[in-house]
Write a protein that binds this DNA or RNA. Sequence first.
RNA 1: GGAAAGUUGGGUGAGUGGCUGAAACCAACAGUUUGCUAAACUGUCGUACGGGAUUAACUGUACCGGGGGUUCGAAUCCCCCACUUUCCGCCA
Length: 424
Amino acid sequence: MLNLKFIQENKETVIERLAVKNFDAREPVEKIIELDNLRKALQQEAEAKQAEMNATAKEIGKLMQTGQKEEAEKARKETAQLKNDIAELNNRRNEVGTQLNDLLLRLPNLPHISVAKGKSDADNEIVKIVDNIPQKHADDLPHWELAKKYDLIDFETGVKITGAGFPLYKGLGARLQRALITFFLDENTRAGYQEVQPPLMVNADSGYGTGQLPDKDGQMYYVGEDHLYLIPTAEVPVTNIYRDMIVEGERLPIKNTAYSACFRREAGSYGKDVRGLNRLHQFDKVEIVQITRPEVSYEALDGMVKHVESLLVKLELPYRIVRLCGGDISFTSALTYDFEVYSKAQEKWLEVSSVSNFEEFQANRLKLRFKDKGDKKTTVCHTLNGSALALPRIVAALLENNQCPEGIRLPKVLQAFMGTDMIK
RNA sequence: GGAAAGUUGGGUGAGUGGCUGAAACCAACAGUUUGCUAAACUGUCGUACGGGAUUAACUGUACCGGGGGUUCGAAUCCCCCACUUUCCGCCA
């Protein structure tokens, strides 16, 4: 959520910058300013009357105590009109406040100044691409066939148990999941991220805190009976650890990493790129989250990008780093780098990580601020997160790229976890 | 699923209608004292939204789980809801 004062003072900038995200903000922004001004006026009027009311009430109290019943009675009668006025003013203010808040919640984050306008992922800028892109051989198999051949993943049984998009991992396939999760968590911990294991369901407050609600309502699985949402990413519970907090400045930056299963309904995204592991309703991911002082958040973002890159290097996967254009960047993000790995048999780039700086956007909703020792003022933090990494497409690329006549070679860093250097 | 108790400031915890934005203690911060440490003492010590010239002093209002009500006046009384804890039941 954008800061109201900022919108007031930078109306045109807000509209221009949101246009980069292909979001026409003129109408909502003007409405927001109008409502905010109205709210202030109503507040001032109501508070002035309330102050008068409070003073009268105090007086009545004194009169009663000193036994001046008649005077008290007289004063009491005078409060009736005030009371009505205040009630009416407050009603109007609440109405205005609700409308205002609703508009604010639906306004996307401003893209960083460096973000280019663009329509879709076709306009993203490739900032780095490695040069060892593998060539497809005629007899290369896509990962879903390799998974079957080596009995690693059973999609059909997943369908039987639950439905499409819920694969059953088996044998070395299951072990590979465990190996990757452990590897990622170990690497992230070594890089200074404290490991946490969060709940897999969250309440609505948490959903609003990180911006999934109301924007992504309908994309999350909802457990109606208990009003809980299955998390689409560990970002949600982990970032919400710090909701409604004023942290000590010296604790920053806060760095957390968490493994979680992730659940996504993916409503409306059928038809394309859904084969095998490319798109699932349930998948495993290890996430990294940072909470920083505003002035260093872009440094932190660079650090996270470097870190994620190091994971891909260690896994010996061909990758590229993409800087998202305005049209492809998410509702909540100011700047996002996507990591994609090349999957040889599909001859396709697969997104495996998205590393974003949300600046104040989430922190405003979360009411996440910090205060330095001896300082009176609180400052809103910046929040960032990234996948490090999402498993399914990593697995897809590992299987496809490392297939050879003898089986599937495993990168060195996974061999100890897997107990073998080759899936046969 | 059944029953009971509870939800107050960073923590513990007092407070059953006006003098309570909230005692006391602890923690924290600043200072005095001190050869150093410790102790002692003094002071400061919530947040949000307004006003004040958008950075001050100062000042208004709100906030004691959330929402509504009674009242001139509510942390305190009433209603609804959420959550937490404990006991019983069930169960990994």
